[in-house]
Nucleic acid binder design. Structure first.
Length: 276
DNA sequence: AATCCCAGCAACCGCCATCTG
DNA sequence: ACAGATGGCGGTTGCTGGGAT
């Protein structure tokens, strides 16, 4: 038969977490890593459902969370990703370093929706509210028309790549297809626009590269320490030493040497050269 | 000073795909 | 093969703090 229940619903704490509970959870995960959420609460001495522990850790206690205000750059990236993915917050979050799906979802509902409305853009369809073409925005909008390849790049016109739309994208539900096609029909962005010096275009190639550093770190960790492979969920931030900060360009997969904000590539490169 | 209203956000709920015994 | 647990996700709720009246 199946497994036993994840937790007894009775006698479980609910609502806001206390500092003591946070500390217990952090201490436990530091010591044992992320693992079976079902057994974690009891092992950590918490009167919480495993699901609640996971949520608390993922959305609030994880050491790699950025927190704080969203930057203008992040705003625009969220808008762009939302126009492609719709309400797939986890996908969007995977491309924003240090941000959680919950955080982005809240931010979308409280800030970005209003921001788009003030621009005259419907936040659901990303079309102009008055039904005409989407008004020009500072950032460029990728165009997807029929099978026409799309150019996305982070590093300027010289290194642009041509990316075919992923089937996944084309299979999206009607509303989202409309979004994409609307981007096309809006005609707000021409190739010429993309290739201006002032504009860079995000690399939104959806199927390439790790969306989060978590799995990447885990792979590195596992190669360096095969014993850890038994615990498939475990990923060690200790092994990487100090927390590697992941800049936007790295997360999106277009890090280059000119990026001064990013320590991650240096850390990982050094690391990889030692262990791989 | 008291009350009301609203924005922001943490946490919960329910569903679904995947995994496990 | 199957029942049921698990992990993950998106939608929603409800608490809290700050501003307006």
């Amino acid at each position: 038969m199946g497994r036993s229940p994840c937790c007894e619903k009775a006698h479980m704490n609910k609502g806001a977490w206390t500092k003591e509970e946070d500390q217990l959870l952090v201490d436990y995960i530091r010591k044992h890593g992320e693992g079976c959420w079902r057994s974690l609460p009891r092992a950590a001495g918490l009167q919480r459902c495993g699901k609640s522990c996971r949520l608390r850790w993922m959305n609030y206690l994880r050491p790699d969370l950025k927190r704080g205000n969203f930057t203008e750059e992040e705003d625009e990236l969220i808008i762009k990703l939302h126009s492609l993915f719709g309400n797939k917050w986890s996908l969007i979050a995977g491309r924003l370093p240090g941000r959680t799906d919950n955080e982005i979802k809240n931010y979308w509902n409280t800030h970005i929706k209003r921001k788009l409305l003030s621009r005259g853009i419907d936040p659901n369809t990303h079309r102009s509210i008055n039904g005409s073409a989407t008004p020009p925005s500072k950032t460029t909008t990728p165009s997807l028309q029929n099978d026409e390849p799309v150019r996305f790049d982070f590093s300027g016109p010289d290194q642009q790549r041509t990316v075919k739309p992923e089937p996944m994208l084309l299979d999206r539900e009607e509303t989202n297809n409309n979004n994409i096609n609307n981007c096309t029909s809006s005609g707000t962005t021409s190739e010429k626009d993309i290739q201006t010096d002032d504009d860079w275009v995000l690399n939104l190639e959806l199927s390439v590269g790790p969306a989060t550093t978590k799995s990447y770190r885990y792979e590195l960790t596992r190669k360096a320490n095969p014993d850890l492979a038994e615990s498939t969920r475990r990923w060690s931030f200790e092994l990487l030493g100090a927390q590697a900060e992941v800049c936007l360009c790295c997360r999106i997969g277009s890090h280059n040497e000119s990026c001064r904000n990013c320590r991650t590539s240096d850390v990982l490169t050094t690391w990889e050269s030692k262990i791989l």
